[in-house]
Write a protein that binds this DNA or RNA. Structure first.
Lengths: 343, 343
DNA sequence: CCTTAGCACTCGATGACTCTGTCTGCTAAC
DNA sequence: GTTAGCAGACAGAGTCATCGAGTGCTAAGG
């Protein structure tokens, strides 16, 4: 990638700042007047032409100003922008809201998404942690009726997962024995580890001879396998996005609505973010793929005991104020990770 | 309400059929040509003028045809339309899909909403049954950590409700005793009845002297009170509505999106339907109140042992084909009620 | 008294045209 | 390398005429 001269950077910076503020194509005149009085519009035009050739800018039509391309934004994010640090008052607000005795992990996450959306004035998205990253607290089997058994798994963090399995009929007192066995034997493992342990034990001698153990293991494995999937998604503050002037177009609005509906896709993209340390910004192709051209997503994974378990982010027009949103998302991921530590 | 002559009914019927098909204002010419060749356009015009005066029709502007008002639709539904019976093939499809071993009541309802939406080509909505209408199966208390207890209530139908309560710290083995006591004592009651029973027992001698009983009752009441609210809502197939040509207008689309977001309101309106036997059609004012002018909702309550527990419906443009949608909703409510009977 | 043909009228939709303001690219001079 | 100046492009707003669908009304006919 070609290097940009200092002056070019300055001009790209000015164009982006102006565009973020107004949403309109920006012309050479404005830059010269408002940002770089020492240069004439003509000079700015020359530079703009260069930047356009490099793919950083584009013109909606010949006689309009220029708007930054996704590539232009990317360059801005990498080379030019300085991330502001989050205002003390905002940090305090977040810390207070998040720690104020949330009973339940779901509730904690819901609060996080509300805060993200309100502070950033955009939509926010949170993927709930994969259950299997958490520590096993308790399992229960409840016989509903002939052949239907409900499995309930509770994690230490207060997540509950339940699922009905169908199979041979087993009496409730037997089921209680199974549950007791599992609850007593498998302390302090993550649910993932527990499943592996069950599988190992399945092959051991004890299981082969003790029918209670073997049946318990069997049910347990079925249950824990089912726990794996179902990543839950919370999207908050869609209205703020719908009301952005950037959505002047009917088809565009429909695209966005559909993109929000189709959570599977968003999850798939956010999962890629999960592995990357720090805050990522998704622009251009990735978003087009979601049917959200001209939008972008600022996202970060959050973790528990240094293992990434979920991700969160802010979705808004590509012309959002990254210097504020990025630290916001970063801080929220940080706080959330800390809170999960304790749970 | 003034009576309509047979001929007027026929003409209103024709106008509505044409409007349902095209979505455009319909003029006298088309009616004369396509539906009532024995009458000239001029005659139709006279009748139309009458119908307009009665509030059944309206003109978007002077030189356009007429479109039926909500009142016109209401009259059509009450006096004119003949409900078709549901095609055998559709009935079979539904019966097959719905009975094909659904493990879980949530799953059953999800299937119902998918079917409703696919068959009607509109959005569908289902309110999950109020938990407290179901029979109590089992309660569990799990101590998460210092002072946080998770309550899990399972109904016979396989609904699970869970909730974290914070209070004084109680050891897990105590909690197990509480749960056992409640599970053994309160068979075969609905959750509603059970709560009442707990409240009664609270005042009895036994509770006063036996601290286990009294603590168990206390926790139980807290838990069951929390179960009451939270009517869950599933809306399926929003896309189909977004893509209707009726939503040509940007603001309208935003209204609809917002209406879908604000589930509380929809629930409140659907709850009114719950008491009414049979299928209701919501038109005009009710829908305007939701920000969904020009849309309507065909809804019906469904019940369990003749007690209404939830409602379901189809939401679409006011110009939907009621003669098909109404029996569809009716049949689905019927099947669902039957299935719930067994659970 | 109901029906109908005929006609004048209304009005949204469409498209051609003009005008204006903005912004560019280029060239020539500094 | 920078800048002033100028011609050219073009979206957007406004004006205007035209078109066509559909009405309401009137007068004639059954």
């Amino acid at each position: 990638m070609t290097e940009l001269s200092d002056r070019n950077k300055k001009i790209l910076n000015a164009i982006i700042r102006e565009y973020v503020e107004t949403g309109e194509p920006v012309g050479s005149r404005i830059i010269s007047r408002k940002y770089m009085t020492e240069l004439s519009p003509a000079t700015i035009r020359n530079v703009m032409a260069d930047l356009e050739e490099m793919g950083m800018l584009q013109q909606p039509h010949v006689s309009a100003g220029r708007i930054p391309t996704p590539e232009g934004f990317r360059r801005y994010l990498n080379d030019i922008m300085e991330v502001k640090s989050l205002a003390k008052s905002v940090k305090n607000l977040i810390a207070r809201q998040m720690t104020r005795g949330a009973a339940d992990i779901r509730e904690t996450l819901r609060r996080a998404s509300v805060l993200l959306s309100q502070i950033s004035q955009n939509a926010s998205i949170i993927i709930l942690p994969r259950m299997d990253a958490f520590h096993f607290k308790r399992i229960d089997f409840v016989r509903l009726d002939m052949g239907r058994i409900m499995v309930i798994v509770v994690s230490k963090a207060g997540m509950v997962y339940n699922h009905v399995v169908k199979g041979e009929d087993i009496a409730q007192n037997k089921l209680d024995q199974f549950a007791n066995y599992l609850n007593e034997t498998y302390h302090d493992l993550t649910i993932h580890e527990m499943r592996d342990a069950l599988m190992r034990e399945m092959k051991s001698e004890k299981a082969v001879f003790d029918s209670i153990v073997s049946q318990a293991l069997d049910l347990g494995i079925t249950a824990l396998n089912a726990v794996e999937d179902v990543p839950d998604v919370v999207i908050q503050g869609k209205e703020t996005v719908f009301n952005k002037p950037d959505l002047a177009d009917l088809d565009k609005l429909k695209d966005i609505v559909n993109a929000f509906e189709d959570k599977g896709r968003i999850v798939r993209i956010l999962n890629r973010v999960l592995e990357v340390p720090g805050v990522s910004v998704l622009l251009g192709e990735d978003m087009e793929h979601l049917g959200m051209d001209n939008f972008s997503m600022v996202a970060s994974g959050y973790s528990r005991r240094n293992v990434p378990v979920g991700s969160l982010g802010v979705i808004g027009p590509i012309r959002m104020d990254y210097s504020r949103v990025i630290p916001l998302v970063g801080y929220m991921a940080h706080i959330l990770s800390e809170l999960l530590e304790e749970m």
